[in-house]
Design a binder for these strands. Structure first.
Lengths: 663, 663
DNA sequence: ATGTCGGCCGAAGGCCGACAA
DNA sequence: TTGTCGGCCTTCGGCCGACAT
């Protein structure tokens, strides 16, 4: 394969050393989602240009699509030689026509799972800590959280007085750093002393940066760094008050001159800055990528996961799912952000204030940053005005349902959003938005059995939870209910009651399938056996008996379809199992709940109450209660899971399960 | 003017800041000769490629001349942002045909002089010191040589106890550095203390590097650095034992890690190395320059004066002069090199061992590195095997004269050396090398008055002088003799008695005018009045009366022609003043003694015996004894010059003059 | 459990005159 | 005149437990 861009970069960066994928992801942070190898994605030139942090002139490509369907042909995990900043080179092969459809399946079935497993393992073996002032201070050591010392570091011999050992850690370049690890003080605590200061200075770390310890599969201890982002969200402006500590990052790096005059001298050239100037991604690269993409040739993009701009190579399924939603002003949603110290992920609630194409002149039909939003906590997200639809998650569709029957159909010509995948014939859907077979604006007409919002209700999150450092909602029981129990009303958020969608002038309601599709009774219109089952954070949990049953059935995995593929595959045919027929169960759990796949909803943190130590659990890999039980038992080293195990997902909702089996 | 290369470089180095020419030359060192603006030069692509320190593939320019006549259209004095290394961008406009001839005159008459004046001033206002171990040590200060403190630094108030002041020095980027200057200790000495260590660290200086203090015209004190070259001469290999101290330059720059392991980590990326990797001049630049040069378009070259490769943009007159010499194996010569610490210039003696084109395959007719040489002190110049003819200076032509009458004329076909200037019709000269009007191989037939080598004898240097730190030959009287005193025999060097030229097989004797032309009686065949005059290191010194006389004469300045232009202008006409007729005296003193112009022969160091402080004197600017006397008086602050003033030139020859006038 | 502080100690930085070349 | 050295003082780096959160 001819790869011009790659060879270009080779010349400036002769020695490319590929990182371990685990370490790379640990450094990239929890928000980073690199699409799996051979999966189908959309490439957004617009986002690529944004990533380059420069104004890119695309005039030479007048007709390039704002989103180019591609297959991921290669992924290289790399790290900047100077700053240790991780980045990836993603090889993309543009797709067209039938190719999209066919290959999409391959990607979904073949490789998605492998990636998720990797991520799971990483979570188990790595620990990230944000450096405190004391950690980053010159004369100091590093306070090692007990959990890290006990689970990641080599076993310490506590019989010595004091217990000490030497820690060797490999960084992203394979260089080994040496630390003295001591367990001392009153009360006892783990500390890194000798060697730590040198590490801080060499890596130019400041308070707010994070260090990642990871125990690799071969037993090596790895050490990565994750620099604090200057601001939350995607804008170039720094949000006020958020993470200001890291903005002034030079104070502890350089001795100021004797009279203070020479500090000016030393900081000029880029070698001395701890973070390279933001020209990682060159304009030329963007142009070249766009050129090749437009002409259907393979190309390669460079992506810096910590560059504070949204990802521009997005899993096709996520984009498709987002495009199926009929976005309306007034919709309530939540969106994930990395916290200031990059240690956690916070979900921020907001309301869609407007749905309009971001840059109609240059990218007339682009869904990129389609949604203008108003945040419940606008202070922290001042510079986040527009977001990508596939990054937000609706928390309740009730306002849409309540209001749309009384709002007049929008007479204005809709903006045509490009959507080049063959699987989703835009023209059909858009040309007749009011046809019975496709969803109406704010009026889903194919909901037959009313609201069955139990699954969504599970994600309801009061905004007061957002700033809890610990999840303390704990001990109230989780009501497991079989999905086919009808009549269960969702727990509604009563935020802004969506005046926008009701007022006559401004509402823009765009595209396709209503979000209330999510609430559609999953088994409706399927050949699905109405098997009783349980859902944990939207992830169906079956007994092993149920699995063997469903496998023996015609399309057992499809029983859990939320209705996406019904609409996708057969806009005029309500009963469809054809598209994903014969898919093995593993695949179905991934693709059939794409809304849940986004942003780690399948990952739950499991706390053992006696320890207050959370372990992460990938629900998507659990196919039975038995499997869950085994996993939990091995996690906590006990043979039985007692009732004090509390489940909590990233949102902060917590559940307590009893010792008795689910079913 | 379209200048592709320039604009290319602009993009990578956005802010080009031009240096003061004086500071630039002070940093570049005494060996650097940048040809004057608008002067005519030869551009050597071969040397350019060598400068890039890479193998450049010139196959795309099959017929590019190895030396391209050009006019210097621009000179930019610049310094590397990171390393402070000075470099120049020289704009060149290829010349052809008549253009060469005409414009050469303009260059010679118009601009050469201005440059020399600059250099003179710089010498007077700057001081360079090579850092000792103590200077470069971490815990130390800087020992300021008294001369530097008293002539370059601001006046110190000695009434205080101790006398202290703050020194502010601007570096090449205009940044100001602050030093505490104190005069203390027993015995008293000048020191820089506070601020010095910081400077050393920031600039990553090591013992062997030099610091240059310069008092600019506006009174500002400037501070430049001049890093030690890794080896003397032009090769890429480091000569053994020479300047080894600087080769290991990292010891004092970085604290080694606590356990020593992290020093490995810190030194990897190029930002931490004190000298950038040797890719200053890119291959692409060389190719591009060659392309433009071959097609006659203007181009620009980047030249790093401290890159240890010979200059590749050479004053046309110097090349022409060298090409007129009939180079023969066995010829004795000297060549200037910068000393290890770059504080002085040493002349090394050698013998031409062979005359053959360096790279006959790629550059079949190139004079570049034409001479293969054997050094009298081969140890120090192990890697200098081949040198450019215009860089060597014959010290005696006696072997040629002695031997050539008995050696048979070389029958082998001569190698054709390209020489594209119109003024020197190669074809004529080469096609008939034995014609009476052009010099024979080793047999000058146009010497009419025997040997008159007084001028050359003045430059004879015994190799034992080379390593003297001080010029101590001092006090023997200098025999001033009018030039038209005939019969004075030169002081011959009796080194290797040139067996090569006598042996039948190997001698290659190439090109044109015999070196004994230098010994030709200058006034012979001229319209010159046989005015008695004195020559100081080859620089004629007239009384003011003589000047006014010669100005009123037809070609007064030409009286001092050494015969170059006779041969050049009129190969078949022995009496010629036409070429340089009407030249003002200033111009003539420059161009008519080109051999003396090279390598600062016109600069003498003047020592006041009571002080042992040398001042530099530019003889070429002196046009009368009175002027010399005035200059010396003002230099030493005395109204009369007593007999204890000793003259010594860079070679080490010293002269003592009396109080009485020359004439 | 762990962030921050002051105390303490040793190393390095840095200024000094002595002394010698 | 000036390079180098040892002495001496200060500053900084860095390890420690105390204490508070």
């Amino acid at each position: 394969m001819i790869d011009i861009m790659h060879s270009l970069e080779k010349t400036e960066n002769q020695f490319e050393k590929y990182l371990d994928s685990q370490l790379w992801h640990a450094c990239a942070g929890g928000m980073t989602q690199i699409p799996p190898l051979n999966s189908n994605v959309y490439y957004f030139p617009q986002g690529h240009a944004e990533h380059a942090a420069k104004n890119v002139d695309f005039r030479s490509f007048p007709r390039i699509s704002p989103l180019v369907p591609c297959r991921v042909s290669s992924i290289k995990y790399l790290a900047d030689v100077e700053t240790d900043e991780v980045f990836a080179k993603i090889g993309l092969v543009p797709l067209r026509g039938r190719e999209c459809e066919v290959d999409d399946e391959v990607g979904l079935l073949g490789f998605d799972r492998g990636f998720d497993r990797n991520e799971e393992k990483e979570k188990l073996n790595s620990f990230a800590k944000t450096l405190t002032q004391s950690d980053a201070n010159n004369g100091g050591g590093f306070s090692v959280p007990r959990y890290c010392a006990e689970t990641i570091f080599p076993r310490l011999d506590y019989s010595a007085e004091p217990p000490v050992q030497t820690i060797l850690g490999k960084d992203v370049h394979g260089e080994v750093w040496k630390f003295r690890h001591i367990y001392r003080g009153t009360p006892r605590r783990h500390l890194l002393t000798t060697g730590w200061s040198n590490f801080v200075n060499q890596k130019k770390l400041v308070a707010g940066d994070s260090i990642v310890f990871l125990r690799a599969e071969n037993g090596d201890l790895c050490v990565g760094i994750r620099r604090a982002k200057l601001g939350i969200g995607g804008g170039s402006e720094v949000s006020s008050g958020w993470n200001t500590g890291a903005a002034n990052g030079t104070s502890s790096l350089y001795k100021s001159g004797f009279y203070g005059f020479s500090s000016e001298s030393g900081l000029k050239n880029e070698c001395d800055s701890r973070v390279k100037e933001k020209d990682n991604v060159k304009i030329a690269s963007v142009i070249e990528a766009a050129r090749l993409a437009a002409s259907g040739q393979p190309f390669e993009v460079v992506y810096y996961p910590r560059a504070s701009t949204p990802e521009f190579v997005i899993k096709a399924s996520a984009v498709r799912a987002a495009m199926r939603v009929q976005w309306c002003p007034g919709m309530r949603f939540k969106m994930a952000f990395e916290t200031e110290d990059s240690s956690r992920i916070s979900w921020f609630m907001g309301t869609i204030s407007s749905v309009q194409v971001d840059d109609p002149i240059h990218w007339p039909n682009s869904p990129w940053r389609l949604l203008q939003v108003a945040w419940d906590e606008p202070d922290l997200l001042q510079n986040v005005k527009r977001v990508n639809p596939w990054l937000v998650e609706l928390v309740s569709s009730i306002p849409t349902i309540h209001l749309s029957p009384f709002s007049p159909p929008n007479k204005r010509p809709r903006q045509h959003l490009e959507f080049p995948f063959g699987q989703l014939p835009m023209s059909t859907l858009l040309s007749n938005p009011l046809s019975p077979s496709s969803p109406l604006c704010c009026l889903p007409d194919n909901i037959s059995t009313g609201i069955q919002g139990a699954r969504h209700a599970q994600f309801v999150l009061s905004s007061s939870d957002l700033h809890l450092n610990k999840l303390q909602m704990g001990l109230r029981p989780f009501d497991f209910k079989p999905l086919d129990y009808g009549g269960q009303h969702p727990q509604f958020i009563t935020g802004n009651p969506l005046e926008n969608c009701n007022s006559g002038g401004s509402p823009h309601c765009l595209k396709m399938e209503s979000s209330v599709q999510y609430l559609k009774k999953p088994n409706e219109g399927k050949n699905g056996a109405r098997t009783p089952m349980f859902v944990l954070f939207g992830q169906p949990i079956l007994t092993e008996q149920q699995i063997s049953q469903s496998c023996s059935m015609d399309a057992g995995g499809n029983s859990f379809s939320d209705g996406y593929h019904d609409t996708v595959g057969h806009t005029s045919n309500a009963s469809g199992s054809a598209v994903i027929q014969n898919s093995p169960p593993e695949a179905s759990s991934d693709e059939e709940f794409p809304r849940l796949k986004d942003q780690k909803h399948e990952h739950c943190k499991v706390f053992m109450e006696s320890e207050d130590v959370g372990r992460t659990l990938d629900l998507s890999t659990l196919r039975s209660y038995e499997e869950l039980h085994r996993k939990l038992s091995s996690m906590f080293g006990r043979s039985t899971i007692s009732s004090i195990v509390v489940y909590s997902n990233a949102v902060g909702a917590t559940k307590l399960i009893g010792d008795e089996p689910f079913g």
